[in-house]
Amino acid sequence: MAAQAAINKSASGRRRDYLPYMLALPIILYETIFILIPIVQQLVSSFTSDMFGISAVKWVGLANYDRMLSDKYFWNSMRVTLSFMGGTVIVAVGAGLIAALLMNQNFRGRSVARAIMTLPWAFPDLPTVLIFMWIFNPSFGVMNLFVRWILPIEQNPKWMMDINLALPLVIMIAAWKAFPFYGLVTLSVLQSIPSELYEAAKVDGATRLQSFRYVTLPEIIPTLMLMGVLACIFAFRQFALIFLFTGGGPARTTETLVVAVYKAAFNSFDFSYGATIGMAGFVAVFAITLLFAYLQRRQEAEAAS
């Protein structure tokens, strides 16, 4: 009987061993077909010359990478991407934190305020861009009125057509759209902080600022760090807002890597070069993802200890 039970147990154990693989199979297949294979194709394409309708596809080795590394506009795109990423992360996560702290207070109409706060996040990209294009229209935009009240200027700013203003504007719009997400996540963490900690701090004579510094901040920092990394990845991938608002201009001042990939592949029809820039972007996102994984593990280890 015991031997039979052991055999049964072993057999059912074997069956159970396959279960995780079976459950994971759909997502593995999906990732393989829609993520892995295209990445491999893109990598292969980056070693070829593929100008549609001009010449047949031919193997060119590292020529595209050589071209990319000596292309000043590639480095411009890299710089713009990092600036956009840094700006969006600071503004969006920062605004999200402030919004979460405000929404964590007890006040009348809090639920309504929270619902309103989420609106920008719910807005599709296209209407968002159209609204901001009108707000910042150099001829008719309402923002011209505000600026003329504040500053002694005779001509309206050119806003998204101004080489110095375009990137900050794009960052502002992207952050405006993204901050509710970070705000909601931060709010959920804030609400999980035991009130006893604040009461104890109060008993110890801590001011509101000290309570924030020594109670709130240590509790939310791991989440903020992870959100920062997530925000980096989201910002790195941002395409629609930038492309619709400025098209990467003026004078390439908002041309991030993804916009550069699109322009190379679908405006210049140079798919190989687009793939090459795409691979550079892939490496960068992969590095950020590794950082994300590292931070997550470290956080888990700290939580376990």
Binding site: K158, M161, I163, G249, P250, A251, K263, N267
Partner: peptide, 13 residues
């Protein structure tokens, strides 16, 4: 066009 337009944007700005 992609060569020309960014420079036109510089000029307009």
């Amino acid at each position: 066009g992609q060569v020309v337009t960014p420079h036109i944007e510089e000029i307009l700005a």
